[in-house]
Amino acid sequence: MNGYWEYARTQLQNWQQDQNVFSRTSINAQPAANIPGASTRSDFRYHKQYHEERCTMQCMCIILLLRRNYAPLQPPLIIAGRWKFVIIVVGCVAAWYMGKLLANSMIDGSLQRALSAIQELALKATITAPFPKQHKCAHWTRCPAGTFAFLVLSGGAKFRPPQICFEDEMLLSSVKNNVGRGMNIAIVEAKTAKTVDTGNFDLWGGDKSERMIEFVKKAPDGSLILMTTYDDSYTRLTEDAKKYIEELGSRQIRSLTFRGNWVFLGTKGFTLPKNFQREKVLNSQKEGNRYGSWPAEIQIDGCFSPKTDYL
């Protein structure tokens, strides 16, 4: 085995000598005195081919020699390096081939057609439920024919104003700029849904209870009185005002406390069925309020029938 490696070293030395010979000899030289037996140009080319084949064999011997010198040192690294080289070559070939296919597809438009087809399949396979449609006064269900939709929403703290809606007409809201701190009231004709009047009465900064009572008393019989609070409606709400609101059908006005929320659908000149939801109250608590010392908003909504609910 040692003689084999000695032969490889000899071939390496011969290869170096041949390189020196070819570096000093021109292909057009006639005769080629440095190469034995090469007296003509054709003989020189023949011997050149011979030396090229010889150099190839010598290079193989050099590779074997290098393998002998380095293989015992770090065989795992050489094997890993070979695998890395193979992976890089295969990756480059695959990348070139895929790039060629992609370029051809982009040119003839087949890629765009394929993407469009995939998009169409995705749209067909996706089942989406339509977003629920809101009806009059933001109801999720439509009121029966011949009835009027209504919504009474209280305020929240000092920055979420109340709303009163009747038959999809916003009677009181911040958009209309007709709401304020205290009690907010809208008066509607029960049989025609026609708006009679709206008003706001500050029950914190001033004594407006008497004015509020006079305002409601002017409403004609057969009217719906929609009432909601904003911020505080308890501090200056007098006893006479509470009694008059109870005459309109309230059962919870005396439960209202400081900064509490209250919504109410009152009637003047008629009554509502006993199972009709017409009132809610939510007072401020020491803990658990949504807005610090103010509770969350509350609301009542429904469908009023001038035929069956007008008693």
Rank of each mutant, 00 (worst) to 15 (best):
D232K: 09
I107K: 15
D309L: 00
P306R: 00
K136E: 10
S42C: 08
N289K: 05
S250Y: 02
D301A: 04
V93L: 04
D18V: 04
S233I: 05
S105Q: 15
F276R: 05
V216C: 04
P130T: 03
R259M: 00
D221S: 10
V281G: 01
E279C: 03
A95H: 05
S305R: 05
H51P: 12
V216Q: 13
M227Q: 12
C165W: 06
M1S: 15
I225D: 09
G199A: 05
I118E: 08
P72N: 12
S293K: 03
T195L: 00
Y234R: 12
F304H: 03
Q252M: 00
N200A: 08
E239G: 12
Q299R: 01
M57D: 04
L153D: 14
G156P: 09
T25P: 08
P72D: 06
H47D: 13
P273N: 00
P306D: 08
S233H: 07
T56R: 07
Q119N: 14
S173Q: 08
P76R: 02
G182V: 02
P306E: 03
K124T: 07
F85S: 04
L121D: 14
L248F: 05
L64W: 06
E287I: 11
A33D: 10
T10W: 05
Q13H: 04
F304N: 06
Q277I: 07
A145N: 13
N34A: 11
M98D: 05
T25Y: 03
E279D: 06
E214M: 09
N178K: 04
N177M: 07
Y4D: 15
S233W: 08
Q134G: 09
I78C: 11
K158M: 05
P295H: 02
L73S: 10
Q74H: 10
S39M: 11
G155A: 03
N261D: 11
Y50I: 01
R41T: 15
W96G: 09
F201A: 01
P72R: 04
S293R: 02
T267I: 00
L237I: 00
Q16S: 06
N200D: 13
R278Q: 10
S26C: 03
